[in-house]
C-alpha cells in the first residue's frame, strides 16, 4: 500500500505517510503476543529482512525530501524500537510466565474478604410498616421522648387519678410535669395543634414503660402510631386500612379480628388480633394481639380545637418489637437489645 502511494505524488505521500505511521503504531501496540506463534508472526510482519514493514520503511529514508527526512527517520526508528520492546517482553513472559512454567493460579481460593454488615431487625420491621402507610398517603411525623404530662395524658383524655393511668406505668422526670412518653400518641396532639384537618400521619418512635424487664416486656420499645382526621372518617375505614396492613405484613390470607377494648383517647376502641397457625396448639393456632386502635375521642379533638361535630378520625398504635418478634420468630424481647453479633448477622443489610 505504501509503495503504491509513493508512486503517485510525493507530498501527498509524506502526509499520508504520517497517517499510516500512526495506524502502524496502533497495530504494534494492540497485537496480542501471548503464544509463540503469534510472536513469530509479529516479528516477521515488522522486522523480516525481506518483507518486514519497518524494514521497508527504513529502506525508504533516502527517498524522503531532505527537510522531512530527519523527522521521518526518527518516527520510523521509534516504531522499530517499540516493536523490539514488545518482542522482548513477550519472549520474557513466554519463558518465565506462570501460564506454562509457574504454578497455576488457583481460582478456587477464597477472595479477599469484605466484611459483612447488617441492619437491625427493628429497622427492617419499622421500614416495612412505614412503607405500608406511606403507600396509603400517610405523612411521617416524629416527636420527642421527653414529653410533658399534658401532651402524654391530659390532652389524650386520661383523667387525673384514674386507673387508666395505671395501664401505662410512667417514668417521671419532674413530678406531675415532665415524663418519658409512654406512647407516641402525644405526637397526635402536636400534629393536630400545628395543622388543620385533614391530618393523615404516622408517628414512629421510642417509648418507655416502667415495667419489670422480662422475656415479654422491656423498659422501652418502639411504636408506630397512626392518625387520620377528616370529614366522614368511620370505623369501617379503620378496619379497611388495618386489614390492608395485616395482609402486607402477614400474608394475603391473614385472618384478623377486631374486638372491643379501651383506650382513653379513642372511643369506640378496639384491639386487633391475627390468627397465628401453630399445629402444636389445640385448635391449630391462637389469636395474637398486634395493635390497638379506635375512633378519636371527641374530647381529644376538642383539646386541639377541632370540632368533633365536623370532623371524625381514627387512630391506631402498634409495637414494632411485637411485630418483629412475630415475623422473625423471636421469643424474648431482650434479644433485640443484647446486640449479640451471632443474632445480628442473621439479618441482612
Amino acid at each position: 500500500m505504501l509503495c503504491h502511494r509513493r508512486d503517485f505524488f510525493c507530498v501527498l505521500y509524506v502526509k499520508s505517510m504520517s497517517d499510516d505511521l500512526s495506524a502502524l503504531r496502533q497495530e504494534i501496540e494492540n497485537a496480542p503476543l501471548g503464544e509463540a506463534d503469534a510472536i513469530d508472526a509479529f516479528r516477521i510482519r515488522f522486522l523480516s529482512r525481506k518483507q518486514g514493514v519497518i524494514t521497508a520503511l527504513m529502506k525508504r529514508i533516502p527517498e524522503i525530501a531532505p527537510d522531512e527526512r530527519k523527522a521521518y527517520g526518527q518516527d520510523v526508528n521509534a516504531l522499530k524500537q517499540r516493536v523490539e520492546e514488545r518482542l522482548e517482553a513477550a519472549q520474557e513472559a513466554l519463558t518465565t510466565g506462570s501460564r506454562s512454567n509457574g504454578p497455576a493460579l488457583d481460582i478456587t481460593l477464597p477472595g479477599r474478604p469484605v466484611p459483612e454488615g447488617s441492619l437491625h431487625p427493628l429497622t427492617e420491621t419499622l421500614d416495612l410498616i412505614v412503607h405500608v402507610f406511606s403507600s396509603y398517603g400517610f405523612q411521617i411525623a416524629e416527636g420527642t421522648e421527653v414529653e410533658d404530662d399534658w401532651h402524654n395524658f391530659t390532652a389524650l383524655n386520661f383523667p387525673e387519678d384514674h386507673p387508666a393511668r395505671d395501664m401505662q406505668d410512667t417514668f417521671f422526670i419532674e413530678e406531675g410535669k415532665t415524663l418519658l412518653r409512654t406512647h407516641t400518641s402525644p405526637v397526635q396532639i402536636r400534629v393536630m395543634k400545628a395543622q388543620n384537618p385533614p391530618v393523615r400521619v404516622i408517628v414512629p418512635g421510642r417509648v418507655y414503660r416502667n415495667e419489670a424487664i422480662s422475656y415479654k416486656s422491656y423498659c422501652l420499645f418502639h411504636q408506630v402510631e397512626g392518625l387520620y382526621v377528616d370529614k366522614g372518617v368511620t370505623m369501617a375505614d379503620l378496619k379497611q386500612i388495618l386489614h390492608a396492613f395485616a395482609r402486607t405484613l402477614f400474608g394475603e390470607d391473614v385472618r384478623m379480628r377486631f374486638r372491643p377494648s379501651f383506650f382513653p383517647f379513642t372511643e369506640p376502641s378496639a384491639e386487633v388480633d391475627i390468627w397465628w397457625s401453630d399445629p402444636d396448639l389445640p385448635g391449630g393456632g391462637r389469636w395474637l394481639e398486634i395493635l390497638g386502635c379506635g375512633m378519636v375521642d371527641p374530647n381529644v379533638l376538642t383539646a386541639v380545637d377541632i370540632d368533633p361535630e365536623v370532623y371524625t378520625g381514627y387512630a391506631f398504635g402498634m409495637g414494632v418489637e411485637r411485630i418483629a418478634m412475630l415475623r422473625y420468630g423471636i421469643d424474648d424481647i431482650r434479644t433485640l437489645y443484647e446486640n449479640d453479633v451471632r443474632f445480628l448477622k442473621q439479618f441482612t443489610s
Binding site: 459483612e116 454488615g117 447488617s118 422501652l220 453479633v341 443489610s349
Partner: peptide, 16 residues
C-alpha cells in the same frame, strides 16, 4: 444502608 454495606452492624441499645 451504606454503613451496613460497608461492614458495620446496626445495634439498638438501652436508653436507660
Amino acid at each position: 444502608a451504606q454503613l451496613a454495606a460497608r461492614g458495620f452492624r446496626e445495634i439498638y441499645t438501652n436508653s436507660m
